[in-house]
Design a protein around this nucleic acid. Structure first.
Lengths: 120, 120
DNA sequence: TGTAAATTACGCACATTTTTGTCACCACGC
DNA sequence: GCGTGGTGACAAAAATGTGCGTAATTTACA
């Protein structure tokens, strides 16, 4: 998703929120200020490069604030901006919608993991 | 985003909604039933292959319903499921949030396009 | 007391993986 | 041959990962 194809705000938000990490990072920052290494621990599968890139993207979007303290063993803190805080309930709502939808779905469904296993 | 790294519903929704097209398609289907070719016209930059793939993904997620009519010039219709309809306001809310955030942002900001142009 | 090693939060170059696009092709009836 | 709604093979592009280097200071150890 390098560039936009419409002037639609929906496409613009998705440009920022698309992918696995942005929403998860927002979710983890819900608890308050975190350091870079905290976020890595929260999600061990993200590479440090991608984590920095995603955080910068969120910063540019005005969702996350990055604070650098100079000193001994370098220290950078991340937290949600006021704007980011207003986004939080929307992201949560999507999660809730997904769960509710799961409950709503007709019976003959399988979890994706089970499906994958079954195909083998 | 081939597979999940957490059991978090947020990650699961994003697996479906990530990318440029899913939310835009949902948005276009807001107006009601559309045919495949209508959706292509709504968004001329999506390749037909991706359009089918995205629609199938949304179908599997229970957001979109696909109806095939057999007859002369083949005919397939797409519309939102009840579940998809409940998702709609959430997607709209994201768009609204983005616009509101734009208004909220401090003055010395540039549009990304302008930035890109300026760098050259 | 001197020296090596670890820590933190990255940036950079390169490699791999994943996603997306292109093009050709199919069946159907007109 | 046209338009409809696709599918499949292959290619290009984009996203993501890997491993190394860096700064300043602290700690480990002899």
């Amino acid at each position: 998703m390098k560039d936009l194809v419409s002037r639609c705000p929906i496409e613009e938000v998705m440009q920022v929120l698309s992918g696995r990490w942005p929403t998860l990072l927002i979710y983890y920052l819900k608890d308050g200020t975190k350091r870079f290494s905290d976020l890595r621990r929260d999600n061990p599968t993200v590479s440090h490069r991608i984590l920095t890139l995603e955080l910068r993207k969120l910063e540019k979007a005005g969702i996350v604030r990055r604070t650098v303290f100079d000193g001994y063993p370098l220290r950078v803190e991340y937290d949600l901006t006021p704007s980011g805080l207003t986004l939080l309930p929307l992201v949560d709502a999507l999660g809730d919608w997904w769960e509710a939808r799961d409950a709503r779905r007709p019976a003959p469904q399988m979890k994706t993991a089970a499906e994958a296993a079954a195909v083998s």
